[in-house]
Amino acid sequence: MEEPGNLELATKSITGRPADGPRFLGATTELEYGVKGWWTTEFYLDGQATFGDSTLFTGYRWENRFRLLPREHWINPVLYVEFENINGADKGLLEVVGHDGQEDLIVPNADARLEKQREIEAKLILSSYVKGWTVAENFISEKNIRHEPFEFGYSVGVSRPLALTARADRCNVCPENFQAGIELYGGLGTHADFGVRDTSHYIAPTVAWTLASGTSFKISPGFGLTGASAGFLLRFGVSYEIAQFGRAARSMFHR
């Protein structure tokens, strides 16, 4: 959850080369704002470039996250609700659901962009903090609001800072600024065809590095585990948090 009044600017990119298809670069720009301690809202703009094809804007997403319990517990649930208005050419791959697979990534942009994907996505995010380890599990349910069945997916991950105690001096390359972990994510079919048959799954080590200034870098190479998965996906991103952006914005209009 974002702290109230803070604005985080982030880019999330992904590149890969599906079998029988050209390399692509999917890019998402993210604005995340903490409205309340229990409510964070995010707006995304998506685009992609496919080598030898074209570069295009693919749509937007608006998500809201709600912390469900006021106190910390062994497992802490957060409800995530997102509206997506993207087209079929979107290659941001922010989540994998249903029977998403590498075949979706080889459709030429001119054809893929004709498919409208106005979808409602809901996730139940469960997280725990155990002796410095962060453990998070998501169950994803996604529904195209026009037609098509419910699609399901999952994501589980663990991560930990390289040091639990902070060093006294201001430093960029100190172990507590690095976070290492591993994620497993994939599709679980649809409500008519629930399960792992013909679905794609990935295992992805992750490394995040936060500078003293608050800028964070993240990189995560993902390896496909099934025939439907792309063989290799590389995710990378950078984020920067503007503390108390809401207060600064309000003061601009109240002079």
């Binding site: 959850m1 702290e3 109230p4 903490g34 309340k36 301690g37 229990w38 912390r67 006021p70 106190r71 910390e72 802490n76 903090y129 002796k131 410095g132 962060t134 800072p161 639990l164 105690t165 902070a166 507590e176």
Partner: peptide, 23 residues
């Protein structure tokens, strides 16, 4: 620090490792 005070706008800092909260 661990629980925050959501109705007063303070988020939880449980994501910080325990030793950092003590620091």
């Amino acid at each position: 620090l661990e629980n925050g005070s959501l109705n007063r706008g303070m988020p939880s800092f449980a994501h910080l490792p325990e030793p950092q909260r003590w620091q």
